[in-house]
Write a protein that binds this DNA or RNA. Sequence first.
DNA 1: GGCATATAGTTAGTTATGCAACTAATTTCA
DNA 2: TGAAATTAGTTGCATAACTAACTATATGCC
Lengths: 146, 146
Amino acid sequence: MPNNQFKRGELYSVINGMASTAVARRLQKNFRQSGLEITIEQWSVLYHLWKEDCLSQQELCNRTFRDKPSITRLIDNLEKQKLVKRMPSKSDRRINLVCLTDAAKELQDRTIDLANQTMNEALVGVNKEEIELVKLVFQRVYDNLT
Amino acid sequence: MPNNQFKRGELYSVINGMASTAVARRLQKNFRQSGLEITIEQWSVLYHLWKEDCLSQQELCNRTFRDKPSITRLIDNLEKQKLVKRMPSKSDRRINLVCLTDAAKELQDRTIDLANQTMNEALVGVNKEEIELVKLVFQRVYDNLT
DNA sequence: GGCATATAGTTAGTTATGCAACTAATTTCA
DNA sequence: TGAAATTAGTTGCATAACTAACTATATGCC
């Protein structure tokens, strides 16, 4: 066995504990300070709907890397806040299409700006090539495990 | 404003949703299949105690990147499972030292092997230099935000 | 010495996650 | 055509996350 085993084990705690948590916390804090009452998880659902509205819950699972119960409850909460609405699909009666309300559409510009601003803060001293490499590594890790 | 803004926003969902979740899920699954009844979060606390036993809860917060209430409850659950024990510090009566039990010490080898094995699966096609760069980028992101 | 401040840890409330078991609609294929 | 298998979504249960408010101990400083 190679002697880099420990370093690999170490990477787990780096990946899972640190940067992603720090980014999520900061973004959540920025939302709160701007008077936005949404959680970072709810935002990540809206983010995908802004790119393409009226997705099925299953499609949201795929795009946000969450399981079905998580999406069910995120949509429940977003519906309570009147940010999305479940619409029955006409072609397949099992499917709920999740569609944005006008209120959600108004959130888009404000939150995307905050997110970009947060990522700019987070990525000071990190160049484009490094970002691309991180994304590539993560894609490979994801593909290896799924 | 540079035109790589969108890419930076994009990175958030990559970082936060994908690889870290996939690794954690796989490791949790491997624990379960080996008959280990611990969660991945509990393991990450034990992991730091194996490196240095009898840390304060605050020190565990720092090392695992969790907040105090999270550590309080993780330690509660680990104590219920008789894997750690809270010991009052002699020098400072505010402090609980969290110490491993013999049962926890026996878990170490089995789980570290599983973790290394999981990371080896996860990191197929990723070389040492790429791993080092990812760690460096994450450290920088963390430092930028804290 | 004694008051203000800081630090360690706990508790309460809300949201989110993972898993397993469930219902309902759809597809497959003999 | 119709039974079996698949797919979309929900519900229940346990654990974990963040915030805010709390108690208790320790430190700083006049």
